[in-house]
Design a protein around this nucleic acid. Sequence first.
DNA 1: GCCTCTGTTCAGAGAGCGTTCAGATGGATA
DNA 2: TATCCATCTGAACGCTCTCTGAACAGAGGC
Lengths: 225, 225
Amino acid sequence: MRILVVEDDADLRRQLSEALTQAGYAVDVAADGEDGHFLGDTEPYDAVILDLGLPIMDGVTVLERWREDGKVFPVLILTARDRWSEKVAGFDAGADDYLTKPFYTEELLARLRALLRRASGHASASLECGELRVDTRAARATVNGKAIKLTAHEYRVLNYLMHNQERVVPRTELVEHIYDQDFDRDSNTIEVFIGRLRKKIGTDYIQTERGLGYRLTDPTGSETA
Amino acid sequence: MRILVVEDDADLRRQLSEALTQAGYAVDVAADGEDGHFLGDTEPYDAVILDLGLPIMDGVTVLERWREDGKVFPVLILTARDRWSEKVAGFDAGADDYLTKPFYTEELLARLRALLRRASGHASASLECGELRVDTRAARATVNGKAIKLTAHEYRVLNYLMHNQERVVPRTELVEHIYDQDFDRDSNTIEVFIGRLRKKIGTDYIQTERGLGYRLTDPTGSETA
DNA sequence: GCCTCTGTTCAGAGAGCGTTCAGATGGATA
DNA sequence: TATCCATCTGAACGCTCTCTGAACAGAGGC
């Protein structure tokens, strides 16, 4: 975890740097808004601790510019001022937390941990198979980065196959997982859906194992007849 | 956005509930730790405001159990105690923010906005989607810079979709996050609101994924049918 | 070559959705 | 308190798209 500290007071800066280093973080420091802004724009930080009263460029301005540039790292604002209206302004500029000087180092570390923990909770669950990708959260499929429009049942079939890549999935198993209990098995709807999927994602992904079922496989991968 | 308030003091509970409702949230309340824990376990909240000193089950215990159960909603801890050691304990139990009584309602709302925004993966206070913009602070929406007049529920629907851009949001999920506990789900109010929103913001922003739900998307973005 | 299994096409059925509207509800105003 | 107005709600209706099942064509195995 790499942290940026932007603080003009030399004593506090050193104190923060030491505390964070000791807590196991990699720490960079900046003494004014311009340096701080530059570092935040160019280096990949996991979180930033930002003083509001800074030389050259104000802390809120620095923060606003980062957010405009699409920087999403969590920012903890640090300031001597205690007025709530400024806290509100800080939050709405894109801050994630706020701490008023003087503060206990323990509390700072605790808030930082909370920020990092929350920021890391955003891994999107996506299944991949070659150039085929299914984002289960967004319910969206892409091939070579191009979005594919799937109907609800097509999506269900593909999703199940993606969860069972490289495995032969019998048609009965597909039926059981896609439909609820009572479904007339004397129908060829699965074949129809497989056909439509092939048409949309490309014919090579879904192989037919005659008499056994279907297998989703990476067509570019190591193939053995 | 649906919020759970767990607070034993009746006055404060009502005050919070009113303030949050007026700010456009759907609010459920609980007066003790056991009720609170149960609600948090069974209903899909976007955030929780949790008092530490609670009857029957302590706030920290409630929080720990939620986290053990895999609940990830952001939690803002609220307490009369000001000692930093308890703040640290609260954070490490899985809290995301901390506020000491007495507090300004404005600050609570600002911290809540920051939590919700961060929880949905957005860094900046104003949510954007193409030319559509929602200012969560002022509860105001604009398209191409022109303000749009939205009713309370229209705003809630749009706000929730903005927090979940590019994702298919099932209608049931929308209902759960826009209304509080008691609401008759066998109604087509969501369709009605979607229809009105499309009329106001333009028809291209909200896509219907038949059988799956609705998706808010940037119409000018790189879309491939 | 015959038989079985799979792929494709198509039209009807049905579900899901959009729209409209009337009544209910709640908040504001006098 | 009575009245008005905006908003919300739930039902009805019609439309569109998807699903389904059948029929037929094609591929593969024996």
